[in-house]
Design a protein around this nucleic acid. Sequence first.
DNA 1: GAATCCGGTTTCTGAAAGGATACTGGTATA
DNA 2: TATACCAGTATCCTTTCAGAAACCGGATTC
Lengths: 127, 127
Amino acid sequence: MINESAPAIHDMKECKSHLQPVRDSLDILNGKWKIPIIVSLMFGKKRFKEIQREIDGITAKMLSKELKELELNQLVKRTVYDSSPVTVEYAITTYGLSLKKVIDELRNWGTKHRNRLMKKNGIEIEA
Amino acid sequence: MINESAPAIHDMKECKSHLQPVRDSLDILNGKWKIPIIVSLMFGKKRFKEIQREIDGITAKMLSKELKELELNQLVKRTVYDSSPVTVEYAITTYGLSLKKVIDELRNWGTKHRNRLMKKNGIEIEA
DNA sequence: GAATCCGGTTTCTGAAAGGATACTGGTATA
DNA sequence: TATACCAGTATCCTTTCAGAAACCGGATTC
């Protein structure tokens, strides 16, 4: 039996330690909606309905749930003004802003991916 | 009534067009496992069980399912060698490699996040 | 001869995600 | 007076997600 696995074992440890922080990020940003919400708030503080209007397809229930989780992780700040009727404002925190590079790369890749698909399928004219 | 919404309307369109490519990316990278699998394969081509050993907690079912989706999107290539017993190898494609920056930023943020948590909770010594 | 490895698939679960609809109570709008 | 807006909550329902366990046939290892 030829031992091919000696270097592989070493790689595996390195790979695992690379994996850990990636998974830490994913744990916090999981799901379909958290990153879109953060993007929306990076354009300025907004009210509940404003966010909902901006993110196509999100329901009030999901938005509410996700905002709570983001608040827990201090990526988003919720402020209630006791005007009447009550006004609630959501804003991104400084910590939330630290996700900018991640999001820029995601947008970047998404753009390239879309172009690639268009080339492959031939460019189709949309209505 | 003071019109505060005139610039907001403009922002909303800009925000939505920013959102689109981000959501395109998320659609492809969704879930808990796809990015970890890609990271693992960036360290070199691997067999099914090797990937499973490297990514703690993933089940064969999930790994199988996720690999199929990644293959469909051409991020991963599957090769069968008809040795006996059959050998199957998974490798990242050139296109898959284009995710490197996204992943680097995720790892980066994850590392910072972990440090932040450690500072907040006080540094605790682990067994 | 028995146990293990390989690359999965199948079946059976429970948990979570996501959607539809209705409701609140105070305010402004028509 | 009737309607719509705001910031959600409550309820119900369906669809995915995800894990645990059993299983396959062929091959190697003990």
